[in-house]
Amino acid sequence: MSRVSLQGRVAVVTGAARGVGELLARKLSARGVKVALVGLEPDELKQVAARLHGEGEYWHADVTDPEAMARVAVEVKERFGRIDIVVANAGVATGGPFVDSDPESWRRVIEVNLIGSAVTARAFLPALLETRGYLLQIASLAALTPAPMMSAYCASKSGVEAYAHSLRGEVGHRGVKVGVGYLSWTDTDMVRGADQDDVMRELRQRLPWPTNKTYPLGPAVERLVDGIERRSAHVYGQWWLRGMQSVRGYLPAIIGTGGQREMRRFGDRLDGRRIGLVGAGGAADEQGRAQGRKDAGVQGRKGAATVRK
C-alpha cells in the first residue's frame, strides 16, 4: 500500500493530553502535520502543544458533548483551513467483577470510548468529506478477545471496532478512509493505573504470552503513524495482533473456560471489589464531570469547548 505525504496536512487527535494521544501528536507534528489537540486537561494540553515541532493548538472539550465537539470542529477548520486526519483516541477504563462494579464508572467507559468516538466522527466527518480524509479509530486487543474483570472496556472497544467497520463501508465511496488501530497492553498511564490494583495486575501477569506483557509506547505509536501514512484499514500497534484476527472466533470459548478457573483461584479477593476509572486520564475525567455538575448547579449547563492560542 502506498504512503501519503503528511507534510502540510491537518490532524485532530482526541485524548491528546497524555499517553498514545500525546506521543502520536508529537510524531505527526515531526512529519509536518498541523495538529489540533483535544482533551480534558488544559494544562497538560498546553504543554503538549508547546512541544510540537510545527503548528498546533489545543481545545479543552469532552468528546461525549456533541455541542462542544461541533464547536471544536468549526474552530479547528477556521484556524487551519482544512481537516485531513482525525484520530479518535480518547478513552478511559475500569476493571473488576461486573456484579460489584460501580455503575457510573461502567457507564462512563461506554460513553467515552464508544459514544465519544461516534460524537467525534459526527463532528468532523463533514470536513473529512471535503478533503477525502482519513479517520483512525483506536480500538484495542479488547476488541479481539473478551477478558474477565474488563467487561466495560471490552464492550466499548468491541463496539468501536464494529462501528468503524460499518462507517468504512458508508463513506469509502466518497473518498474517506476509515481505519481501526489495535493496541495490546502499552506503557501508558491507563495501564499503569490498572496495575495499581493487585488482583488486576496478577490476573494480567497470568495471561498467556504475548498478551501478558507491557509494550513500550514508542514503537506502537510509530506503527499508528505508519498506518495513517498508508490510510490503512487496520493498524496493529504490536506485530502479533494481526495474527489474533485469524483465531478470534475461538477465543470466547477459551477465555470462558480459562476465566472461570482464574476467578476461582482469586476467590474471596474478588468479593466487593469496586474500581473507579483508572489512571491519570480517568482521574481527569472524574474531576471534569464533578466540576461540570458543580457548574451546572450554579449557572446551568454550559458548553465545554474552549480554545487556547
Score class of each variant (00 low, 15 high):
residue 2 S to P: 09
residue 3 R to T: 12
residue 5 S to M: 08
residue 7 Q to P: 00
residue 8 G to I: 00
residue 9 R to K: 15
residue 10 V to F: 05
residue 10 V to I: 10
residue 13 V to L: 05
residue 13 V to W: 12
residue 17 A to P: 08
residue 18 R to D: 12
residue 22 E to Y: 01
residue 28 L to I: 09
residue 42 P to C: 03
residue 45 L to T: 02
residue 46 K to Q: 13
residue 50 A to E: 14
residue 52 L to C: 12
residue 55 E to V: 03
residue 56 G to E: 07
residue 57 E to L: 08
residue 58 Y to P: 02
residue 63 V to K: 01
residue 66 P to A: 06
residue 67 E to W: 03
residue 68 A to Y: 04
residue 72 V to Q: 05
residue 72 V to E: 07
residue 74 V to L: 07
residue 78 E to A: 15
residue 79 R to Q: 09
residue 80 F to K: 04
residue 81 G to L: 10
residue 82 R to F: 07
residue 84 D to S: 02
residue 87 V to W: 00
residue 89 N to I: 04
residue 90 A to T: 00
residue 91 G to D: 02
residue 92 V to M: 05
residue 100 D to M: 02
residue 105 S to Q: 01
residue 110 I to S: 05
residue 111 E to G: 01
residue 126 P to H: 14
residue 126 P to I: 12
residue 131 T to W: 08
residue 133 G to C: 09
residue 133 G to N: 09
residue 133 G to V: 07
residue 143 A to Q: 08
residue 145 T to M: 15
residue 147 A to S: 15
residue 150 M to T: 13
residue 151 S to G: 15
residue 153 Y to K: 06
residue 156 S to P: 07
residue 156 S to A: 15
residue 158 S to L: 13
residue 161 E to D: 15
residue 161 E to Y: 06
residue 164 A to S: 11
residue 166 S to G: 14
residue 166 S to Y: 09
residue 168 R to C: 05
residue 169 G to H: 10
residue 171 V to T: 06
residue 174 R to L: 13
residue 177 K to C: 05
residue 177 K to V: 02
residue 181 G to W: 00
residue 184 S to T: 01
residue 187 D to W: 10
residue 190 M to L: 14
residue 192 R to M: 13
residue 192 R to F: 12
residue 195 D to H: 15
residue 198 D to M: 03
residue 199 V to Y: 02
residue 200 M to V: 10
residue 204 R to V: 03
residue 208 P to H: 11
residue 216 P to K: 07
residue 218 G to W: 06
residue 219 P to C: 08
residue 220 A to M: 10
residue 221 V to E: 09
residue 224 L to S: 12
residue 224 L to H: 14
residue 226 D to K: 14
residue 231 R to L: 10
residue 242 R to W: 12
residue 244 M to E: 07
residue 244 M to D: 03
residue 247 V to Q: 04
residue 248 R to H: 05
residue 249 G to K: 06
residue 255 I to V: 15
residue 257 T to C: 06
residue 264 R to P: 00
residue 264 R to M: 02
residue 270 L to W: 11
residue 271 D to C: 03
residue 277 L to P: 04
residue 285 D to M: 11
residue 287 Q to C: 06
residue 290 A to S: 10
residue 291 Q to Y: 13
residue 291 Q to K: 11
residue 297 G to A: 13
residue 298 V to N: 03
residue 300 G to P: 01
residue 303 G to Q: 09
residue 304 A to K: 11
residue 305 A to T: 04
residue 305 A to D: 04
residue 305 A to M: 10
